[in-house]
Nucleic acid binder design. Sequence first.
DNA 1: AAAATAGTTGACCGGTTGGTTTAATATTAC
DNA 2: GTAATATTAAACCAACCGGTCAACTATTTT
Lengths: 184, 184
Amino acid sequence: MMARGYHAVSVKDICSHADVAKGSFYHYFPAKWDILKEVINARDDFYQALFYRAMTADISPLGKIRRIFELACEDQQSALESTGKVAGCSIGNLTLELSFADEPARRIFQQLLANYAKIIAQALKEAMDIGEIPRRPAAPIAQAIFAYLQGVILLAKTENKPKMLEQLADGAITIAKGLTESPA
Amino acid sequence: MMARGYHAVSVKDICSHADVAKGSFYHYFPAKWDILKEVINARDDFYQALFYRAMTADISPLGKIRRIFELACEDQQSALESTGKVAGCSIGNLTLELSFADEPARRIFQQLLANYAKIIAQALKEAMDIGEIPRRPAAPIAQAIFAYLQGVILLAKTENKPKMLEQLADGAITIAKGLTESPA
DNA sequence: AAAATAGTTGACCGGTTGGTTTAATATTAC
DNA sequence: GTAATATTAAACCAACCGGTCAACTATTTT
């Protein structure tokens, strides 16, 4: 349901999807916003787990970065199979929807996105440590790779083709290997 | 106003922002959806013009690609100055918001995004023609660069810092120079 | 100037929204 | 088994939604 966005989905929609009555919903959640917080937490857990799986795979550090794209592809593929549509990254979707109008939300998303970029930075440092890529500051490169991931997910959503995540994964490896300048 | 999204903005909001009454709104637009179409057209014109400016600058083809990021940065900077917030790319925002739930909208956005990628592919071909980058199929690289642009705009929006578009522009150049494999 | 056309207005409409409240039902503790 | 607690439900509320429409004002045409 978070594929359609916060504002496009009513409490009634949520309740009918979950097969509970509105009274039950308000028993557990003080307001609509509170289920959003739960959804954000749940999705963050999901994505943290996805990143963890990539990071703990027994492959090279750059392979781990590629694995993120592959796992994201699987995630979008299973959404496609269950809904007929590519839903995109729910955290990314909500970020775009809510960051402009809601400052506390922007800060939450800012933190979440920074955490994902940090995980990527870790893999980059490992890659530098074993000489897979040249040594330089990892943080901006991680940001670039994360930005690229989000953009590719947007394209996959627009094209309704999860496979684009695999097709364009090399872009991330290219950035990892070649992005050399690190403006402050 | 399109910074907040289609669903988050009511016809009443639009009218009060434009200082017209609702009756006047419905004199000109049959329904809410129709002003969205106007906004999409207007924003598409704007972005086409932005891309045109980058493409017609008297600089190298790769410089043209970098110029897209610089102009996008200026665009976001002026939004920041007028609203206090980075609004993001309105076409990107709407794409994410509407593509899942609205198939005709998804197709419209699909087409628009493909057009932007085509412009980037043109610059890539020029770069290949003058030997600035190695020759290979331009379309997937253009897609990757466009995806990257959208991702960086998302980050800039989340961080509320337009300057990230300049700081991370090198990622696009890196992709242009180094992305070599072109999966079908 | 009068008639026709274009543009503006805001009260109104039925339906929906997020949230409230009271009653009923289910579960747990003693 | 009874009392206390937890959970569920749906009618209700004021406000809001996209859209309608009759009345009014402004502009253009004759």
